[in-house]
């Protein structure tokens, strides 16, 4: 496969997973626990958009926007229902709760929408060729949406009062209160933002591939790998982490290991030795293990605390 094609494929994968990882990392930063239910917001978002797009005949962009808003509000509801009772609890207790919540949400999706594979009503996507690379219009849309979303997140965090209050609350919640910041309100905004990003990521995955109730669960490992790689709590790290994971996965899958092992035919004749796509997840695991061993705070992990 052409190198440009590998880069584009990596970019598409990074765009989808990056949105989820930024959402995860932003919520981790404030709530101080790894929310295993986070990826299920992606699944719920994707299915809600499906209902509005396919069942109700709504335009996919409008359907997506409504789904994103609904998932954002749903996450606040879940926080008020479940996590507010666990403020101050250990991160293990919160993690286990989120694991249970994730199972409940996943099976809730299955109960409502069924287990069959579904897709959006966006018609057949014919790839176009750009600089020797084949890419569908939807994939271009995914990359652009992701880049725009990341720029918006950056502007929110750095330029707005809300974003600065989020960063202040994350760094020192007690002092943030002394500044007049209603930190519970900030927590609600963080849930909304994180879950909305997950929903957007889920819709992007649905547009690129298809929808199943396990679509969130199946990307949990790569999303966590990206967040850990970038440094949990650092949205910019998640952006870089997504790119690295996307590239590593695609280079890993499309590299002829036979040529490497034989030093390109120097010490024998072995070609066509590829990692089967079924082992794609193993690449995320390897990245996660290596980062945890080598630099547990991630490549852009926070050091100033």
């Amino acid at each position: 496969m052409l190198f440009q094609q590998i880069v584009i494929n990596a970019l598409i994968r990074a765009s989808e997973l990056g949105l989820l990882a930024i959402g995860l990392t932003v919520t981790y930063d404030i709530l101080k626990f790894a929310n295993f239910a986070h990826v299920e917001f992606a699944c719920i978002g994707a299915f809600l958009a499906y209902t509005m797009n396919v069942t109700l005949g709504m335009n996919i962009i409008l359907a997506g926007l409504v789904a994103i808003l609904v998932v954002g509000v749903l996450s606040i509801f879940i926080d008020r229902l479940v996590f507010i009772r666990l403020r101050g609890a250990s991160s293990i207790a919160l993690m286990v709760t989120s694991l249970g919540l994730g199972i409940a949400l996943r099976n809730g999706v299955r109960a409502i929408w069924g287990a069959r594979i579904k897709g959006y009503a966006i018609g057949l996507q014919n790839p176009v060729e750009l600089i020797g690379v084949r890419i569908t219009p939807v994939q271009i849309f995914i990359i652009l949406t992701s880049v725009i979303s990341m720029v918006i997140i950056h502007l929110i965090l750095k330029r707005t009062k809300l974003g600065k209050a989020m960063r202040a609350t994350s760094a020192n919640p007690a002092l943030a209160q002394a500044c007049g910041i209603h930190t519970e309100r900030i927590v609600r905004w963080v849930w909304f933002m994180g879950a909305s990003l997950a929903a957007l990521g889920g819709i992007m995955i649905g547009l690129d591939t298809h929808l199943t109730p396990r679509m969130g669960f199946s990307v949990m490992i790569p999303v966590f790998a990206i967040s850990i790689l970038g440094g949990l709590g650092n949205p910019y790290g998640a952006m870089v982490g997504a790119l690295i994971l996307g590239l590593t996965e695609n280079i890993g899958l499309y590299t002829d290991l036979g040529k490497i092992l034989t030093l390109n035919g120097l010490i024998g004749n072995l070609t066509g030795l590829y990692i089967p796509t079924g082992y794609k997840l193993a690449i995320s695991f390897i990245i996660m293990i290596v980062v945890l061993l080598w630099r547990p705070s991630g490549i852009m992990g926070k050091r100033e605390r």
Binding site: A168, N172, A176, A178
Partner: peptide
Amino acid sequence: PDEKARVGIGYVPQLENVFPPLTVTESLDM
């Protein structure tokens, strides 16, 4: 505490009394 701040009480704790990742201007903004 946030309501106390709104009625006009300021508080400087002994420890952890700044936001480490925020710049000076951002801190004053907060």
